[in-house]
Design a protein around this nucleic acid. Structure first.
Lengths: 198, 198
DNA sequence: CAAGTTTTGAACTGATCGATACATAACGAA
DNA sequence: TTCGTTATGTATCGATCAGTTCAAAACTTG
């Protein structure tokens, strides 16, 4: 029984997420967020408590969509464990190739946030840590399965291999932001897989 | 024939570098730089043209010291190629363990700058690209040598292996900033080396 | 000591920051 | 249609931003 909103909150959140992804948290002004979402300041502050609250919601949205997509691949029963990891790395290559602005890769919002904020924003750091724990657990499960199905022949501890794969993904994203092209990323993925079958 | 400076420019540069390293470029205010260096605003603007100029000098200093230290290891003739890579990765682990603030690793200023600024600061991006090219060339030379001395048995192209090692280092730094402890980093380094002998 | 040059500290600039106040517009319920 | 409520646009808040101005201080040289 009151005036309804004229915008879609989810779409606004997507626009804000993209802006934080492109420019980072500090370099994004509230005016940038107004421009990107098409909302006025009042609407933004009426819907979200603050710039930081909006950032947390945007980061949560990014983590949700990104990690759930990746975990789905890791649970694909029709593939061997090694094939799942290979597919995951191929998805990272595709993502880095797709998400660009100004001729450069945007990288990954979780990696970018780890670098920019983890040290001085404990709430963001907590979100990132929980996401990392989830990803590592899923990777570990797949790698243990790979030991059983024979597609992962490395004798290393599955937890160590999981941390390695997770680090390799981060390294690929950094390399991409630093200018590495698709074929460079593909070769990094290939060598990464070598380590699992060493 | 004029009033001399009462501060050491190199020490000021070190203090500024540390501040940018800890907080990032955007989150570092000129007041932070005054506090960290102990200098007044006039002295800073009299010595450096701007905040951005000071940042470039600080980044150049970081790149110089970091890369020259690492390249020295890669040229250590008494070690096999694989041993040099192993030593390099151990140095990264040590660096991440040492350089901390607020209970968290600071990561690496070049990685941090790649994430925060490469997309919209072409001067910084250029400095980082030249540094990456130097590092990749050195890694590639070592890996080719490893093929000859037998310590690197991977059949992959040396350029691909070089990009892989460089990415792995970046991934270790991100992992460290995300909360990975020393033993986690060591295990990532171990698996990274496995890929070179696959 | 005095002239000449540079450094230094403090006050200050306009711009922009994140956030708020408030009046008005726009809707649903009665 | 009228009331109650929420959304929205505008104007503005105090704080802080990077950077400048300027006079006084401090040194070297003659």
């Amino acid at each position: 029984m009151a005036r309804p909103r004229t915008f879609d909150e989810e779409r606004a959140l997507d626009a804000a997420m993209r802006t934080f992804w492109e420019k980072g948290y500090e370099a994004t002004s509230t005016q940038d967020l107004c421009d990107a979402t098409g909302l006025g300041r009042s609407s933004i502050y009426n819907t979200f408590k603050s710039k930081h609250d909006l950032f947390e919601r945007a980061l949560a949205r990014y983590i949700d969509s990104m990690t759930s997509t990746q975990l789905a691949v890791l649970e694909e029963r029709r593939l061997t464990a090694a094939e799942r990891i290979r597919t995951l790395l191929a998805m990272v290559v595709d993502g880095e190739t797709e998400h660009r602005a100004g001729g450069r890769s945007l990288g990954c919002l979780t990696v970018n946030t780890t670098v920019e904020l983890a040290a001085r924003d404990s709430r963001a750091a907590g979100m990132l840590e929980r996401d990392t724990a989830r990803r590592l657990a899923a990777l570990r499960a797949v790698l243990e399965e790979g030991r059983r199905d024979g597609s992962i022949t490395s004798r290393r501890d599955a937890g160590a291999l999981a941390r390695f794969v997770n680090a390799a993904i981060g390294g690929m994203r950094i390399s991409s932001q630093g200018g590495a092209d698709r074929s460079a990323l593909e070769s990094i993925a290939d060598v990464t897989l070598d380590a699992l079958t060493a």
